[in-house]
Amino acid sequence: MSPARLSPEEIAAIEWLALQRSGRMSAAERQRLERWLAASERHRSAWERLQRRLDSAFAGVAEQPAGLARNTLLSAGTSRRQALRGALVLAGLGLGGLGLTRPGMPLDGLVADLSTATGERRRFVLDDGSSVLLNAQSRVDVDFGGGRRRLQLRRGALLAEVTADARRPFVVETPFGRVQALGTRFSVALGERDATVWVQAAQVRVETRAGSSLVLATDEGARFDRDICQRLEGQRRSEFAWQDGWLELHDRPLDVLITALRPYHPGHLRLSPAAAALRISGLFALDDSERVLASLEEILPLRIHRYLGWWTTIEHS
C-alpha cells in the first residue's frame, strides 16, 4: 500500500468539512467556506469528491435504525481481537508451541527424506535392500543409522517390503504408535485420528503409544490410535489396497472414497458432511480421479462444483 498524499485542496476540503460538522461554525466561517469554494474549480471538485466518497461508503447503513450501525461498529472496535492482532503468529519457520506432536498433524518439515506428489506412487529402495512403495502425497523420513532400521511415516501411506535382518528390527513409526515387521510385507496408512496396518506376508507387531500391542498375521489388519489397537474385518482390506491404484468399497461412506482419492486429485477436494455420509460400493480407479468424480455424480445425489481448476466441492444435492 503506497503512502498516498493528499493535495492541498483535499486537505483543505477535509478541514472545512470537519469544521462544518462541529456544530459551532460561525457565520463568518461559513462565508469563508463559500469564498474558498468559489475561488477555484479544484477546490470545488475536491469538496465534491470528498462528499461523494463518504456518501457512497455510508449509504449502506443509512436506512438502519438509529444507533444500530453505530453500536455495532463501536463495540466491535473495542474487541479483544484488536489487541491480539500483533500477536497473530503463523510462522513459516520457528514452529514452537503450535502443538506439533498432535496426532494426525503431518509435521512436514520443509524437506522429508522420501516424498511423492499428487497422483504419484513411487517405490524407493533402501540401503538394506528393503523397499517402500509410497502412496500419492506421502512423506517418510528414513533413519537407518546405528543398528536401526526406522521409518517415520509423516503423511499418507507406505507399503514396505522388508529384507530379513535379525540384528536390526524394521520399524515404521507414526504419531499414534509403531509397527514392527516380524515378516516381510505390510502397509501402514496415516489418518487424521488414527493409523491403519495391513499385513500381506508374515507378521507385524503393532504397539500404540500407550503401550497396548497386537500381533497381526497375513491378511489381517488393524487400526490404532495412541491408546488402543483394534482389528479390522478382512473385507476392509480392499479399502487400503492403493498400491495398484484401485479402491474397492462395499457399502462404505463416501467419505472413505474421497479420503483415498485426495492424494490423487490435483487441487483441493471438499466434501460436505451430508454428502460424506452417503453410502457407496464399487471399484474405483484412483489414478483417474476425474472419472471417478464424474461417475459419482451419476450414481449418487451429488452436486460437484469446480472452481478455477484448483478446488472441487462435493455437496449433497
Binding site: 461508503a57 449502506g60 461498529l73
Partner: peptide, 24 residues
C-alpha cells in the same frame, strides 16, 4: 447490513478507538 458494516469497518482500520468513536 453486515456487508455494509464490514466495508465501513475496513475503512476505519487504523484509527484509534477514540478517533473511531468520535468519527462515527
Amino acid at each position: 447490513a453486515l456487508e455494509a458494516l464490514t466495508a465501513i469497518d475496513q475503512l476505519l482500520d487504523g484509527l484509534s478507538p477514540k478517533a473511531r468513536a468520535a468519527f462515527l
